[in-house]
Amino acid sequence: MLYYATEIPVTKETSLSGRDASIETIQRELTAFARRARHKASQMHPGLTLVMYSMLDLMNERGGCRAADLAAHFLLDKSTVSRQVSALEKLGLVSREVDPEDHRGQILRPSEAGLVLLREAYEVRRQSFTERFTGWSDADLADLARHLVRYGEAD
């Protein structure tokens, strides 16, 4: 790292101009956010990964779904989804039901234990976000929410 005479560190971000520096900062912060999310997921339940938690959450949000729906939503290979769902089943967090529209298929839903885990995780997340945003104005929160939705819609 280089230093100016005033002892201010010169980083890659400070050597970039406006837009490029902002993109670098966003990338770094979103990567750190993802790492924290993975860590938090592992704290919720032994053996639970962020991918598994995200799948369980989507099953709940949709009122159940097929493995192919999970693969499409998360852009994962069907074999990867199969392994993740099997692990969720072994943890007792998922149940399978025959798809009433196609008896060859199965609908995946959170089990009662999975629903309890999701409720507890939701409360922990809500408290964590509430604490993080204590000093933020309502306008700042609304702006962040709007920007995150806009960012997500790009997919």
Rank of each mutant, 00 (worst) to 15 (best):
E153N: 15
S42I: 06
R35Y: 02
W136Y: 08
H45A: 12
S95G: 08
A67H: 04
A71W: 04
T134F: 10
P9A: 11
M52V: 08
T11I: 04
G63F: 11
P110T: 10
N60D: 10
R35A: 02
Y4W: 06
Q127N: 03
E7C: 11
A21V: 04
C65V: 07
D20I: 02
G135F: 05
S137R: 03
T6K: 12
V94N: 01
P46I: 04
R150M: 07
Q43C: 09
Y122F: 06
S137V: 05
D143K: 14
A5R: 12
A145M: 15
G152E: 14
M1E: 09
D20N: 10
I23N: 01
H103N: 06
V94H: 03
H45Y: 11
S79W: 01
L58K: 00
E112Y: 04
A154V: 15
M55H: 05
L93D: 10
R19T: 15
R83V: 15
G64K: 00
N60H: 08
T14S: 15
K90M: 09
A21I: 04
D77R: 01
R150W: 13
T11W: 07
R36F: 14
D69Y: 02
R19K: 15
Y4N: 14
A113D: 13
R66C: 09
R125P: 00
E7D: 14
F74H: 06
R38M: 14
D102S: 03
R28N: 07
M59H: 09
V94M: 08
V124I: 05
G135T: 06
G92P: 03
F33M: 08
S22F: 12
L91N: 05
A139N: 03
Y53A: 15
D102W: 03
N60A: 14
E153Q: 13
R38E: 09
D69K: 08
L48C: 11
H103V: 07
E120V: 13
L48Q: 04
M59P: 09
L48F: 05
E101Q: 02
L2N: 02
R35V: 12
R62I: 13
R104D: 07
T49Q: 10
R125S: 07
S22Q: 10
G114H: 00
L88F: 02
R62H: 06
D99Q: 03
F133V: 13
